[in-house]
Simulated assay, not measured.
Amino acid sequence: MNKLLFLKKLQEELEEDETLTVETQLKNLESYDSISLLTIIAFVDENFSKKIDAKQFKNIETVSDLMNVIGEENFED
């Protein structure tokens, strides 16, 4: 998936007004809560067929961290 498309789709999934970048701190988003965590897990599973455990989010602070967990090989520039 193209990185820009990923950022746009993630922003839509989170119903976030702020434009997301790879540096965006997820915990600083107004919409970030336990429901959005589940939304992200479902989004990643649906788009990348990759299971993310909720416990992994302790180490995920930025969108870039999330992309690293998904795997850089899944993204195009």
Results as ranks from 00 to 15, higher is better:
N59T: 13
A54G: 10
T39M: 05
S49P: 11
K55S: 12
V44E: 09
S49L: 13
I52W: 00
V63A: 04
K55I: 09
F43D: 02
I41C: 06
E73T: 12
I40E: 00
D65N: 11
F48I: 06
E72M: 06
K55T: 10
S64H: 02
I40D: 00
K58F: 12
T39S: 13
F43S: 03
E73Y: 06
T39G: 11
E73V: 13
N47E: 09
S64R: 10
K50W: 10
M67I: 01
N68M: 05
N47G: 11
V44W: 06
E72V: 09
I41W: 01
G71P: 01
I52P: 01
I40W: 00
T62I: 08
E72F: 00
N74H: 11
D53G: 15
D45M: 14
F43V: 02
I70A: 07
K51C: 08
D53F: 15
K58P: 15
K50C: 14
D45G: 15
K50E: 14
K58C: 15
E46R: 14
E72G: 07
I40M: 00
G71K: 00
I60E: 04
E73N: 14
E73S: 12
S64A: 07
I60L: 04
F43K: 02
S49K: 12
N68H: 07
N74D: 04
D53L: 15
E61C: 12
N68S: 11
D45S: 14
G71H: 02
L66M: 06
F43C: 06
N68K: 07
K58D: 15
I40Q: 03
